[in-house]
Amino acid sequence: MKPEDTRQKLTGVFAPIVTPFRDDGTIDFEALKRNVEKLSKTRLRGYFALGTNGEFRSLTYDEKLRVIETVLEVKGDKVLIGGASCESTFESKKLAQDLHRLGVDFVSLMPPSFFARRMTDDALYEYFTEVAEAVDKPVLLYNNPAVANNLCLSPALIARLSEHPNILGLKDTSKGNYDAYIAASEGKEFFVLAGSADFVFPALLVGAVGGVLSLANVFPDLCCDLVELGLRKDLERGLPLHRFVARLNSLVSGRYGVSGVKAAMDLFGFEGGFPRKPLKPLGEKEKEALEREIRELLATFSRSQ
């Protein structure tokens, strides 16, 4: 893939799509399909399937493949990033190869973290490069210490990996390291996606090309507005929207995580469904409070425009 093609494919907003479960724990694939069909009518650049919001650690291997197949059926012209993160190089390679075979555009890899204390930069370098060399699809690193046993990819490792011809970018959710990662890969064909609506706007100002934003599952157009302003470096209009979106995000995924994203989807026109146990859904009082606070915030912002 040419560098300009990679940049174009990654520039914009990606929704890290959820996996809707029924209350018995089975996947509601029809709800997943309806969510993607609805999102495909928006300005989103694409989707990230089998990520944190997709509860990928709670899925069986076969379920992961079926999720990807379902998204591919209805994604239209959107770009699809597929998560291939497993705890071993062996299984990550196998899953990455299967995702390649199915037709994803990019493969995403989070560092294995069960043996976090043994995951040195050298060990992780071997992991990422071995998987990257096993597939003929570009690989994106995924840095999310909060769900990886506090394992955070170092700028030195990112700089090293950015030299690899098949490792072309990074989704960073480390709450502040994005500027270090952009600097570490400066001058290389390596593209950074911010991993949260909390900091996507400042990340764009220092060189990120887009974001993978959980809030885009609920308010995709709002997220697209913010990212477009960031790409244009429009501080006058972008900063007020950034502050508003960050507050909105704190109510949804910031406070409740995946369960909050799913509840907000149910409240605002999508189908979040249940999380898979042992993760618990929001209670009725929590849902009522969430809806009230979101609607109050939306109304306050609307009046200020």
Rank of each mutant, 00 (worst) to 15 (best):
E291L: 10
R276K: 14
G254Q: 08
D221N: 15
V252E: 01
G269R: 10
D266S: 09
A264C: 11
L279K: 01
D221V: 09
R237N: 15
D225F: 15
V261K: 00
E286W: 01
E228L: 12
G273Y: 01
V258K: 02
E271L: 09
K233A: 14
R255W: 06
E236G: 11
L282Q: 00
G273F: 02
A264V: 13
P281M: 04
L235W: 15
P281R: 02
G254V: 05
K262P: 04
C223K: 02
R292D: 15
V252R: 00
L279G: 01
C224E: 06
P275I: 00
A263N: 09
K233E: 09
E228G: 07
M265G: 00
R276G: 09
H242W: 05
G238W: 02
L241C: 14
D266V: 07
P240F: 11
E271A: 04
E271V: 03
G260S: 04
G283Y: 07
L267Y: 04
E284I: 07
E228M: 08
R243D: 09
D225T: 06
F244Q: 07
L279R: 04
E288F: 09
L231K: 09
A246Y: 04
N249E: 15
A263F: 00
M265D: 03
K233S: 13
V245T: 10
F244W: 12
L239P: 06
L226S: 08
L251G: 02
S259D: 13
H242V: 00
L248Q: 04
K277I: 11
M265E: 02
E284C: 10
G269N: 11
R247E: 14
D221P: 11
S259C: 10
P220T: 14
G238V: 05
